[in-house]
Design a binder for these strands. Structure first.
Lengths: 340, 340
DNA sequence: TACGCAATCGATACCGGTATCGATTGCGGG
DNA sequence: CCCGCAATCGATACCGGTATCGATTGCGTA
């Protein structure tokens, strides 16, 4: 096994003290330019790499932050992560991604692993299954900076970034109404999520504003957020089984939109497909399904802002008590007009 | 700021030595059961968390491994990551994901950050842009265990996991031939990738075996692997501009398949769309596009195996000189029959 | 009685950087 | 000539665990 060279090796070789080498390598003003050059040259020549653990241990900081999302194979989250990374790299932070797979157990384990000094802060979008927040509250009480995005909770005060889910849902539902549909169903996400309630509200508001009746039987929620395609198919099968079938569906999330369209393709002939509108940040879904209206969230921007807020918390010298709750606007993408 | 309790605090409180506490917490056989219980109880009660940096620094191991892929918003890679995680968590390893975005610079930076004792090993699927492998060779020469999967290189000997790309490509192309198509184009990936050459081979083999002529003008490759939709559209536009248009296209990757279908939807009426077959691990793509034949790779299994091989390298007491190059089989998914 | 050995625990060095405090040198001003 | 101060660098403790070596005790056995 190869033994990497340390700061002490350099010190010995150049007849300097370890502290001088350390300072030279971090470009300290107290070190003579000439000395710096010697150190840096020697370090590069011998392929020196600073040991991040030793550094973190001493400094009490790791310059890395943890991101907890349900899954990365999701346009919304992957775009958000890109936004997070764009800020992080600029400010010298490293991003550690971990997936909860919408499972409570997984979320707890991942956070424990990330927490306690291994990361300087946490960006969290809650898992669908999680009802008990004590693992997060604990970390927060221990002083770990946390920022929520998208799927937030109010167990304690901190910065949050969300999009205007109510309005997005309303716009999508309204677009279906504008296109002449009246029997509009709602395929909802897991019931405990903040976004679920907000989007349901928007859906109901739109119906109400247009004098349409609310029908509980037209609402179906997926407890696993569509990560199990079977539950989506069940919901679609249910809609298809209704004596009075919906002629349109408003879908609450990216994955559910995928699953919903896919399920209809599988379970019913094209002539019987309802119009579908829903939340999605996919680049191609709207193109693949010309009849699909989607609500896009500014995912990249959300990631960017969340990361900036987190860095603010981390680098603040004093405890922060004044928290921001940013709400970003959504964008409605109408169906493409395809010739032929 | 909250000050987490350390092993020394526990030692002092229980009137033990730090080493005893350390051993008690790692369930050493040299510690009396009674003492262990006292220590563990106190630790739990006071919410003790072992500091991973100190631990890693001393042990020279971090029990975490790094994964470098081009992007996570990709069915194939996200499934592979799930496979990796399934093994990792079982063996007590933590997985750090990082994305190269198919950019050379990004790949180098990420690896540097992961490397040098911050991770115990690396699982790599090469970026499309990378032609210079010295950053990886360096790490390897320093003794960092590395396993390649999917997009491999042969700059040095190590374990690798791939799927049978040649055969997969052949099967897909053959399926198009079987369906009666004769003018089959190929939308290829970035030229330097191992998978690109292998899949091109399979495509050409299939044509040859069926007595069809190879036509260079029917092959177009995307240097950014389709991450820039514009380059896919250009290729599609090119195919559409040919005096003799292809009646079918074999597409080399997941993202390219998405992009290709999407581009055709955008650029040509449905009646002029060619049949499309290609590599894809998407759950829904084949359902959304009934006419799409896809080659699935055993992504989860690839991740699983790669991780197991990496752990073997990491935990081997002696240098390993006998390397495995596993090749897994692909599966052809024929178009669904949709009524209506 | 003496010795060997297992069980249990302590003291300490060390992992590799870095914060802290201090030492040395040189020079300008009073 | 002395003092103050800036510039430059060294010695050392320390971050929080843990490997290493040793110490102590008790007990069975030669």
């Amino acid at each position: 096994m190869f033994k990497p060279i340390t700061i002490k090796d350099i010190a010995q070789a150049l007849e300097l003290s370890p502290s001088t080498v350390s300072r030279a390598l971090s470009d300290s003003y107290e070190i003579n330019e000439e000395t710096k050059k010697r150190v840096i040259e020697y370090a590069e020549k011998h392929n020196y790499r600073r040991n991040p653990m030793a550094s973190s241990l001493r400094q009490g900081r790791s310059y890395s932050i943890g991101v907890v999302v349900c899954e990365v194979a999701n346009s919304f989250f992957s775009q958000a992560i890109d936004g997070i990374e764009s800020v992080a790299y600029g400010k010298g932070y490293h991003v550690i991604i971990s997936q909860s797979h919408d499972a409570y157990e997984r979320e707890v384990v991942n956070m424990q692993h990330l927490a306690n000094r291994a990361v300087d802060g946490l960006l969290i979008s809650m898992s669908a299954e999680t009802k008990d927040f004590s693992h997060i509250v604990n970390l927060h009480e221990q002083g770990l900076p946390i920022v929520f995005f998208d799927r937030i909770i109010d167990a304690f005060e901190t910065h949050t970034v969300t999009s205007n889910n109510r309005e997005g849902a309303m716009k999508a539902t309204q677009s279906l109404i504008d296109r002449g549909f009246r029997k509009i169903a709602h395929l909802a996400n897991a019931p405990h999520l903040s976004i679920t309630a907000e989007r349901l509200e928007g859906y109901e508001d739109a119906l109400r504003q247009n004098g349409l009746a609310l029908d509980e039987s037209f609402i179906r929620c997926c407890h696993h957020g569509g990560r199990i395609q079977q539950e989506v198919e069940e919901a679609v099968r249910y809609f298809l089984s209704l004596p009075e079938r919906p002629d349109a569906v408003f879908v609450a999330s990216d994955r559910l939109s995928m699953g919903c369209l896919s399920a209809y393709n599988k379970l019913a002939p094209k002539s019987e497909h309802p119009a579908v509108a829903g939340f999605s940040n996919s680049d191609v879904l709207d193109l693949l399904q010309p009849n699909f209206t989607c609500v896009r969230q500014p995912a990249f921007e959300m990631g960017r802002m969340a990361m900036e807020m987190l860095i603010q918390l981390i680098e603040s010298r004093y405890p922060v008590y004044d928290f921001e709750n940013v709400v970003l606007q959504t964008e409605l993408m109408m169906p493409h007009r395809i010739s032929g």
